[in-house]
Design a protein around this nucleic acid. Structure first.
Lengths: 173, 173
DNA sequence: ACCTGAACACCGTTCAAGT
DNA sequence: ACCTGAACACCGTTCAAGT
């Protein structure tokens, strides 16, 4: 058999993430799920951070972006919302994506997809920061709620409004 | 003697953070630094997350905000930049603050200080997201550079410009 | 080429027992 | 009230050895 490869590892990692959360995504746990020795993973992957990066790439690979219409503001908004929704709907994805971007181990497609419709790097940076920041702030709230803590609900519409503050600025044509 | 208390723990934790990074802030490391048994820490602190929260509170407690002038845009910008600079100048602080905010274990002063000069919760949320997102994105770059990876430099001025996109929007008086 | 087993140097948390 | 010692159930990573 030996169906184990880099792609299979990220699949199992992502599955572990959605069902048990980021804390349960350990090299030992992934190995157990695949019924191999932990050390076997290191043949396919440099280290844990690289596995997390592969998971982010796989997560973003599934995102379908609509083709650019030429309306810059509309295009950016559409892609930003698509990315935001994807991150929000996957458990602990905000933290995962943030760490991959921070360490440069994954998530290039996020910046690339925005740059393709963004007028400049500055705007892309602001949009990325808004996505990561809002997702991080929001996903904690989800966790806190799951733990029974009462917090004010922040929804996708809040993100859309924050997004409008940026794209609505005069500096964007 | 017994000069050990919650405040002392966060002091040592913060010192460990700046000198060795977040990965080296462990309960065992803090205990060693204080020359006590690890289990002793749990008398003063519920768990590790609570220690991290205390560290964030201590970090933000040192931030001096200028009193509100009445000029909303100026006041928000000033406080946002103050917070952003504080986070950026302390090693791994972006990740630390983000996790504390996400889990609701610290950092209330950040939201409070912005709310005091912000016209509404929506704007505060956007500003917070921008600070956390930009700091996270930026601090990784610092780390990556420290590891010898070459990345495009993003400076404080980039954050200021992104901030202008939000505060410059017509929805803020 | 790909995998195992064992080891190394760590973790956070709990809890009986001490003073 | 505050602390120790020992234990429990974990971590990521390396590396000789196997096939």
């Amino acid at each position: 058999m030996s169906t184990m490869n880099r792609d299979e590892l990220s699949r199992v990692g992502l599955q572990l993430l959605t069902t048990h959360g980021l804390a349960d995504v350990s090299m030992r746990r992934v190995a157990k799920e695949l019924d191999v020795a932990v050390s076997a993973l290191y043949w396919h992957v440099k280290d844990k951070q690289s596995l997390l990066g592969a998971m982010v790439d796989r997560l973003l690979a599934d995102v379908n972006f609509t083709p650019p219409t030429g309306d810059t503001r509309h295009d950016i908004t559409a892609r930003a919302e698509r990315l935001y929704d994807t991150i929000l709907e996957t458990r602990d994805a905000a933290e995962l994506v943030a760490s991959a971007l921070a360490l440069g181990t994954g998530g290039e497609r996020m910046r690339d997809s925005l740059n393709a419709v963004s007028p400049n790097a500055l705007t892309t940076d602001a949009i990325m920061a808004l996505i990561i920041g809002h997702a991080t702030l929001n996903q904690q709230r989800t966790q806190a709620q799951a733990l029974g803590v009462n917090v004010s609900p922040t929804t996708t519409s809040t993100f859309r409004q924050a997004l409008n503050l940026v794209t609505g600025a005069s500096s964007i044509a």
